[in-house]
Each structure stands twice: as C-alpha cells, then as structure tokens.
C-alpha cells in the first residue's frame, strides 16, 4: 500500500492499490463486453461471480447493487458501467445512487451548472 497519497474529496483514485484490490471484479465486468457473458451472468449471478473469483466484499456489493461498495472493493467505473448496464442503470442513475439523491435531485444538481457559450469566428470556410 503506497504511503502519503493525496486525498481528493469524494474521489477514489484508481491507482495500483485499487487495481490490485479490484482485479477480479473488473475482470468480470470486462467480460460483459460480450452479450453471451451478460446473459450468463443474468442467468446465474452467484455462479458467474464465483467463476471470476470475486472477493466476499465484491460479491456482497454486487448482490446489493451497492456502487460505492464496488468502488471501495477496487471496482473501476469504466468496467462497472458495463455491469450497471445489465441492471438497467445509466450513469445518471449511478450518480443518484452514489450521492444519496433521487434521480430528479441528481439531474437538478447538474442543471445548477447550466451554461451555454458559443463563439464562431468570421471565416469563409464556416459560411452557412
């Protein structure tokens, strides 16, 4: 475990420590690029997790659809997103789950940053 790591609020940096801890979970999620594997998981979650040697913490987090738990157990969001897809959750659903907000609250929080700024130069190649 590396020492003196920089802490970033509300953020788990996916570094070597996390990557070591999460390897089995992430390997399982990477397998979900294949439809056949997604179906095999849906048909038998426990057997599929066993096949990838998930740790007890990882299995529990998956059973409970506990995203923060999966992250704490070394899950990387780019791979977890494939698992979330099986559960019918998009990234906004994930955001709500992790922040303890309702989906509407989470979307409203994003809209608080709402801004649109556009610049287009005078240039012949851009003429309509």
């Amino acid at each position: 475990m590396a020492q003196g790591k920089r802490a970033i609020p509300g953020t788990l940096v996916f570094d070597g420590d996390a990557a070591q801890a999460g390897y089995a979970l992430n390997a399982m999620c990477y397998s979900f690029n294949s439809l056949a594997n997604r179906q095999a998981f849906a048909a038998d979650e426990e057997g599929y997790m066993e096949r990838f040697h998930l740790t007890p913490e990882q299995k529990d987090a998956v059973r409970q659809r506990n995203v923060l738990g999966m992250l704490a157990a070394g899950g990387n969001v780019y791979y977890l997103a494939k698992l979330a897809g099986i559960f019918g959750l998009n990234v906004q659903d994930l955001g709500a789950l992790q922040t303890g907000m309702s989906l509407e609250e989470f979307k409203a929080a994003l809209l608080e940053h709402s801004v649109t700024e556009t610049r287009v130069a005078q240039d012949g190649r851009l003429a309509a």
Partner: peptide, 10 residues
C-alpha cells in the same frame, strides 16, 4: 511483488 512493481511503475 505487486507493491514494488507499482512503486516502480509510478
């Protein structure tokens, strides 16, 4: 020795 590997990688 994964910990030392990661130290080297960093």
């Amino acid at each position: 020795h994964a910990d030392l590997s990661w130290h080297i990688i960093e």
